[in-house]
Computed example of a mutant assay.
Amino acid sequence: MSIPVVDFGALSLSKEDVSDEQMHHLSQQLKTAFTEVGFVFLQNTGITQEEMDRVQDMSKKFFLLPDAQKQSFSRGSFPNNPNHGWVSLESERLNPRRPGDLKEAFNTASLHPDIKWPSDALTGFQEIQTSFFQRCKELSLRVLRVMAHSLGLDPEVFLSTHRLVGTDQNGTTLRSLYYPPVDSEKAKEGQLRCGEHSDYGSITLLFQGSEGLQVRNRAGEFICAPCIPGAVLINIADLMQRWTSDRFVSVLHRVLLPPAGDSQTRQSVAFFLQPDDEALITCCDGSTKYPPVTAGAYLIKRLNDSYGRS
């Protein structure tokens, strides 16, 4: 299995219209990728490598601050959105059966005007994070439109349940990830940089600074995902698999420890698109393969599993 690479230029963020022929071609390519692999690389999306570098550069400046300085922006300290903020090393376990992941994160989960940002130490941090959030939102909605078309559905099936992205009534999160240097010999037994997991919501957009991600194929083997400059790696998440009665597949992925002697850091930025909290997710083919669930309740359960709360 290899992850398909698709030219998304016809629906680039710089384009206003797409022809029926272009939409049909794109929808067939995405349908094949999402039904057979669960992942796809999109090129020519309109989000440039320079934009990706800008958000990663600013994020790294935050991660290199002393922990004491980052502490006041910790996840869980923002009343209007408990998922917003800094996630310290080993505090999250994306595979709850393993020790804490060897990574840090900053979650931009709220754009509320009262949210506190680390702007005193990092001029431009808020502007760069929120601007990139909006760019990812726009691209995600275009991808949803193509996905609905590929299944012969009205685009509103997906779009109408993502009206509140960027508000505190929707759990969509832009997540900057930082994997510091690791001494593999000192890591705990079974510990990874990022444990095996599938994502929770609709789709995920991933911007990688280097290789390291592994994706499980249909044979149950983990394969290395390449890093393609300028491309966006997009995968199906669990609610979308439920929504489409398993036509689109959400697959496990992970980030291993680096080889012994490798002291390199790793960075990535992920945009986790969620349906609105009150959206009721039911099988769009009318079946009862999965019971109905509200997106917000499902997200809370999955986050509690990752952070060790029942």
Rank of each mutant, 00 (worst) to 15 (best):
R266C: 05
V249L: 11
V232E: 06
I228N: 08
I234V: 15
T265D: 13
L273T: 07
Q241W: 00
S263C: 04
T288I: 02
T265R: 11
T244V: 12
S268W: 10
L257M: 09
C283S: 14
A237D: 14
Q274S: 13
L239E: 09
C284D: 07
A225H: 05
Q241F: 01
G286P: 07
I236K: 08
G261C: 08
M240H: 07
T288N: 15
I281G: 04
D262K: 01
R254I: 02
Q264Y: 09
L239Y: 05
I228K: 12
R254A: 03
L257F: 10
H253Y: 07
F272W: 06
A270L: 13
I234Q: 06
S268L: 09
E278N: 13
A270R: 07
Q267T: 14
I223L: 12
A225L: 07
I228D: 08
F271S: 08
S268T: 12
H253G: 02
D262R: 00
Q267D: 13
F272Y: 04
V251G: 02
I236D: 01
P226G: 09
E278S: 15
K289M: 12
A279W: 00
D262A: 03
Q267S: 14
A225G: 07
D277K: 11
L257P: 11
L280W: 04
G286F: 11
L239M: 14
S245D: 13
G286C: 06
S287C: 09
